[in-house]
Design a protein around this nucleic acid. Structure first.
Length: 874
RNA sequence: GGGCGCGUAGCUCAGCGGGAGAGCACUCGGUUUACACCCGAGCGGUCGUAGGUUCGAUCCCUACCGCGCCCA
């Protein structure tokens, strides 16, 4: 504060080297505790919990994007005086980690079963200590202002207690049950998967039609999974289907098995599809399962947990399902039972999202959450407006999920994760569900399965704040302010967090949900390893700095819309950072002083205009943040900083600084300092490193992280100053255009005489015009050889130039003709509108008046340009 | 098959009832005392197609074509 502005510039190097200072700045922020709000703070809380990244993961381009948004929001709220908490952590990624460590064991020639459960889990923790959580270090590179003192992991003791507490509550409320159901089975993982972990893909398979039974009593059925016929326990037809009416109630022989199976009538069969008769495999197909239940059919499981045929008593036992598919088909062919084959047959098949193989529908005993009451509450919270979804269009997708959710299968046949807190008596006749700290009766055995990772993720917004303990953190920071996540994750953690939050905490876990899009490459293509267009955000941080990457993300972040990103755009953002750097350097070299008093009496039009523009910028940035319109925020900042401040104000400030009027120059230094100060504050959430460096140098303040967010100053808008500056800009631009047309070098000075500036009210800006467009005062021998006229708000300004005879008339004529045709088009358009009676009668008064004004202006332009063209030498 | 979204300048995207915009790319000029990661000037669009509503449609409605996503 006491530092002399004139000497501060010595602390600012001539170029910005992000790589040299980012890490140091970051660690300083963390050490000073800026990111760790106190639960005792009197300030209003602002909370974001990180959607927990996977412990196996690295910071990919999508995380970096999402983190930028969260960091921007949190940093801004901190500057606005909130007790801002961004809570970091990771989930344990049950399936991913389990599979990863299991693979390692296989490579070492052993297996998890050989190792045993206890040692396997130890092994996983060891892996986590050595290799897990790399993303946490990478988040520091990006500048994530998270509170590391509150970091959480879903497998930590506290969060594990939260899991078992929640399980027990739901269980005791009858919202968790165990049942034998058709589930999505992964033969590779040997575990069940939730519906959300299955992705449907079109595949080229085959549709095989085969005949069951003999002669008149035979039926033809078709399937893409021939091997499942071994588990058929019926054939179903539509009850109204006359073709098969005589067969309903009879039996046919199921080939290869010697079994006889009934033909049943079921109204869910589509008589239009295929032959109208379908094979029924209740233990291996969801639809068939339902038919089986309705008709009390036997449910024959014909595969083991690895997808191999088992216990059918046929030659196919022991074969993998795909091998059996071919073998069964060929056997049927030998027996003459294949009546048709369609190949390739395009159809949709569910695949395991994690292990990629086709899932196998399978009858299995699992634990489920009864979601109906929970999902209804989650839907109501949005319907009632308690939770706002941004952008609102995403509500539909949310309701689609919430309103049509199936019960959630939460057990997994894995070892890494939260073990289901249910114990069985030695004879299996009794079971008990226990909460944390409760002991099962001696000799009872705990359920072997673990819980779906999403179960613990669903608790994340409050388990991370120490729930079920009633702590100061929980009271202060729950519910969280906003969940920032991709629209693809609606059904993963969003709905689960909503359901659990409302159930356990009696209020939704966030006040708002801000959905963002997916990061795509510069051509709008989805990034994927196979397309080879995946980029590493860390490489770009190395090359261009974290701020450049962050700014690029923000510029592309329209709510809910995909974000394309490419290296050239990151480079462009880096250029923007450099521009700011240089502008600040210029300001400091000229003694810009943000603390100096601004004497309003001495303000020039330029000062008034930029202060007003700056004021509007603050308002616009605030308004757009409120709507999560990040792209509009950054666009406004970019344009103000570059187009208004650097391109015009700084140039005008030079005129003032060199005017020799010390009082005026001092005032300009104060305005320069003030505007830059505001601009750097506004940019800080997006570009924390660069702005911190510049701002501390400019102001001598401690840190921008904890500086105040700008407020909209109560200051009258000087509309006249704005008009004069707009006129000034137009005048300068037109003269530059004329010079360019005439082939004058930008630096070449020419003598000129200007007129009409006084009646336009911009005579005070004459010195600035002369400086910006290199016009000398007309001397003794001044002889105007070229001239132009510029229509300003209040008058027409005349500019006569002495080009020493060398006038390019052709160029001037071309320019005038172009201007004329623009004016004529405008004139014609306005005339047509005003000539339309209905327009004049129906259009609002102000619209009609505006068109009249435009018509007059166009007419004046036409007259002036025509006269000038007529006066040009041939 | 059902649902949602999108087709605007070479590229990526704003705008969404009354004068077509931005960034990048491109062309020309440039040793202007902050900046060539720059400065100045410029080129570039029948706003997917066809109808309709309206005094007026890139904007609203309908159909179609193309692309993407989600669900079955």
């Amino acid at each position: 504060m006491s530092e002399n502005p004139a000497t501060r510039h010595s602390t600012l190097p001539s170029t910005w080297q992000p790589g040299e200072v980012e890490a140091e700045l970051y660690e300083r922020w963390v050490e000073r505790g800026y990111f760790s709000p106190s639960a005792d703070s009197p300030a209003e809380p602002f909370t974001i919990v990180i959607p927990p990244p996977n412990v196996t993961g690295n910071l990919h381009i999508g995380h970096a994007f999402e983190h930028t948004l969260m960091d921007v929001l949190t940093r801004r709220e901190r500057m606005r005086g909130k007790a801002a908490l961004w809570l970091p952590g990771m989930d344990h990624a049950s399936i991913a980690v389990h599979a990863l460590v299991e693979r390692q064991l296989v490579e070492e020639g052993t297996s998890r079963r050989e190792l045993g459960r206890e040692r396997f889990v130890e092994r996983v923790w060891e892996w986590k200590r050595n290799y897990g959580g790399q993303i946490l270090a990478q988040m520091r590179r990006l500048g994530d202002g998270v509170d590391w003192s509150r970091e959480r992991f879903t497998m930590d003791d506290g969060l594990s207690d939260a899991v078992s507490t929640m399980f027990k509550r739901l269980h005791d409320d009858g919202l968790i049950y165990r049942a034998e159901r058709m589930v999505n089975w992964s033969p590779v993982l040997r575990s069940v998967l939730s519906d959300a972990e299955v992705e449907y893909k079109e595949v080229e398979g085959e549709l095989v039609s085969m005949r069951y039974g003999e002669g008149e009593n035979s039926v033809v059925v078709a399937t893409t999974r021939v091997e499942t016929m071994l588990g058929d326990t019926a054939v179903a037809v539509h009850p109204d289907d006359e073709r098969y009416a005589h067969l309903v109630g009879t039996e046919v022989e199921l080939p290869l098995t010697g079994r006889r199976i009934p033909i049943v009538a079921d109204s869910h069969v589509d008589p239009e599809f295929g032959t109208g008769a379908v094979k029924v495999t209740p233990a291996h197909d969801p639809n068939d399962f339902e038919i089986g239940r309705r008709h009390e059919l036997p449910m024959r499981t014909i595969m083991d947990e690895t997808g191999h045929i088992a216990e059918t008593g046929t030659e196919f036992d022991g074969m993998d399902r795909f091998e059996a598919r071919l073998a069964v088909r060929e056997k049927l062919r030998e027996q003459g039972r294949i009546v048709a084959e369609k190949r390739p047959y395009l159809h949709s098949v569910g695949h395991s999202e994690r292990s990629k193989e086709p899932i196998e529908p399978r009858l299995s005993l699992q634990w489920f959450v009864k979601v109906e009451p929970l999902a209804k509450a989650a839907g109501d919270a949005v319907r009632s407006g308690q939770v706002a979804i941004n952008p609102p269009e995403m509500e539909k997708r949310y309701f689609d999920w919430v309103d049509n959710m199936h019960d959630w299968c939460i057990s997994r046949q894995l070892w890494w994760g939260h073990r289901i807190p249910v114990w069985y008596s030695p004879d299996g006749s009794e079971q008990v569900c226990l909460g944390p700290g409760e002991q099962p009766p001696p000799g009872w055995a705990q359920d072997e399965d673990v819980l779906d990772t999403w179960f613990s993720s669903g608790l994340w917004p409050f388990s991370t704040l120490s729930w079920p303990q009633d702590t100061a953190d929980l009271r202060k920071f729950y519910p969280t302010s906003v969940l920032v996540t991709g629209y693809d994750l609606v059904f993963f953690w969003v709905i689960r967090m909503m359901m659990f939050g409302i159930y356990a905490m009696k209020q939704p876990p966030f006040r708002a949900i801000a959905f963002h899009g997916m990061v795509r490459d510069g051509n709008g293509k989805k990034m994927s390893k196979s397309a080879g267009n995946v980029v590493d955000p860390l490489a770009w941080i190395d090359e261009y700095g974290a701020d450049a990457l962050r700014f690029t993300y923000l510029r592309g972040a329209n709510p809910g819309v995909d974000v394309p990103i490419s290296e050239e755009w990151v480079a462009a953002s880096r250029n923007f950072g450099t521009k700011l750097w240089n502008a600040t350097r210029f300001a400091m070299l000229n003694g810009a002083d943000p603390q100096a008093e601004i004497d309003t009496a001495l303000l020039t039009d330029a000062d008034r205009w930029i202060l007003d523009a700056c004021r509007e910028l603050v308002a616009s940035v605030d308004a757009n943040y409120a709507e999560y319109e990040f792209a509009k925020v950054s666009d406004a900042l970019y344009r103000f900083a570059w187009d208004e401040f650097c391109d015009w104000y700084v140039e005008l400030a030079k005129v003032s600084l060199n005017s020799g009027d010390e009082a005026r120059a001092a005032n300009t230094r104060a305005v320069l300092g003030s505007v830059l100060d505001t601009l750097l504050r506004l940019l800080h959430p997006v570009m924390p490193f660069l702005t911190e460096t510049l701002w501390t140098a400019l102001t001598g303040g401690e840190s921008l992280v904890i500086a105040d967010w700008p407020t909209v100053r109560e200051q009258p808008v000087d509309q006249q100053a704005r008009t004069r500056i707009e006129d000034f800009k137009k005048l300068v631009t037109e003269i530059r255009r004329f010079r360019s047309d005439q082939g004058l070098k930008p630096g070449q000075r020419v003598a000129a005489r200007l007129s009409g500036l006084d009646s336009a009210g911009v005579e005070g800006l004459l010195p600035a015009v002369r400086t910006l467009v290199r016009l000398n005062e007309p001397g003794q021998e001044f002889s105007a050889s070229a001239a132009l006229e510029v229509g300003l708000t209040g008058a027409v300004a005349g500019v006569e130039l002495d080009l020493s005879g060398a006038v390019d008339v052709a160029a001037e004529r071309k320019r005038l003709e172009k201007d004329l045709s623009v004016a004529e088009k405008e004139h014609k358009g306005c005339e047509a509108k005003l000539g339309n009676e209905k327009f004049v009668a129906n259009a609002p008064e102000d619209v009609v008046a505006k068109v009249r004004t435009r018509l007059e202006a166009a007419a004046a332009d036409i007259e002036r340009i025509t006269a000038r063209l007529a006066g040009l030498p041939e």
